[in-house]
Design a protein around this nucleic acid. Sequence first.
DNA 1: CCCCGAATACTCTGAGCCGAGTATTCGCCT
DNA 2: AGGCGAATACTCGGCTCAGAGTATTCGGGG
Lengths: 198, 198
Amino acid sequence: MVARKRGNPLALAVLGLLWERPMHPYEMATTLRERGKEHSIKINYGSLYTVVQSLEKHGLIEPQEVTREGRRPERTVYALTEPGELEMQSWLSELIGVPVKEYTSFEAALSLMGLLPPDTVVTLLEQRRERLTLTLHTIESMLRKLDMSRAFLIESEYHQVLLRAERDWIDGLVKEIRDGTFEDLALWRRLHEERDRG
Amino acid sequence: MVARKRGNPLALAVLGLLWERPMHPYEMATTLRERGKEHSIKINYGSLYTVVQSLEKHGLIEPQEVTREGRRPERTVYALTEPGELEMQSWLSELIGVPVKEYTSFEAALSLMGLLPPDTVVTLLEQRRERLTLTLHTIESMLRKLDMSRAFLIESEYHQVLLRAERDWIDGLVKEIRDGTFEDLALWRRLHEERDRG
DNA sequence: CCCCGAATACTCTGAGCCGAGTATTCGCCT
DNA sequence: AGGCGAATACTCGGCTCAGAGTATTCGGGG
């Protein structure tokens, strides 16, 4: 058998859930939503069922029983196999222990920002800054009224840290462009002025 | 015509390149690599050619001429259309001005870290910390010997800021788990000990 | 007691993306 | 002269993913 390709983290979440107890796919989705994991892991039905199929194909999970309640569609309850438990541990260990470069669309946008004139960029950055602050406030107030135990909040704590770092950095950048400290600002501006005339 | 679906940022980069001058796909790839954009935008041939096709289909770029050098394969040179220029500006503006949640695999992993025993997690986090520091050093020394103008480095400056924020946060987390300050640590540990015996 | 909307439990299709593979040519080294 | 690796310029098939669509049932209001 070929080495499993570790793609969608949703598959890892599935392994995690089955580590606790057997479940059918739909229940996995709702359980994940109840626990608020949808904010850190993208869940959607299409992917969920493909992912479960692929895990079964690789022998990491196996159908335990097929039940039916009333005349609802059948539910296949899956259980974790032993290879599945090992895979879950090794995969999760890799995700935590080995950083991988993730391509964000904002980083891409920054690398192309020279395509817009400086003043436009400043306006947009300020817009982003405001929106980030708003998101941050929303998260903070959500957490305050939720008051779950720390272990469930780790991921959103991390998320907040990154958001704040981004906001502060944008702040600095905006100031530099505004007061002309930004290197090659003149060049940048000239380029767009020429283009506008030409 | 249906509204274009703004997917792959590589398409935006293509629009950006054609804003400067007409080019054929292979040249786009090499130009982007020369400028080091491959670090902020994922480039691969498969996607590049699909993306160019789709841009042409939507009238944002158009073939200008088909040349041939020696007996190499033909090269189709594309140029930006006016709708293409507008789309590039509005798309880039959106990417800068409107933050969108991006799902990183580390955030997913954090939300599942309870599946591993605390001591394992600490070891893994320390591993990650070391690797992050290493990456940071590599980037710093690359930038030092590269000495390009600021405008070309913005994206990697941003990247560094995020890496540092992550590293510092991990530092704090590790300390909390180590010295027992971490909330519900006992519960977490007990859960795994029971499981080991059971 | 009947209707409507929410919840249950998936299924399906098309689009997008990846990256290994292909075929040719240039240039350098011996 | 000829052979080999790097560069040129794409192509192709398979896999994944999104998310809208489907069919059924339960619960509550009038």
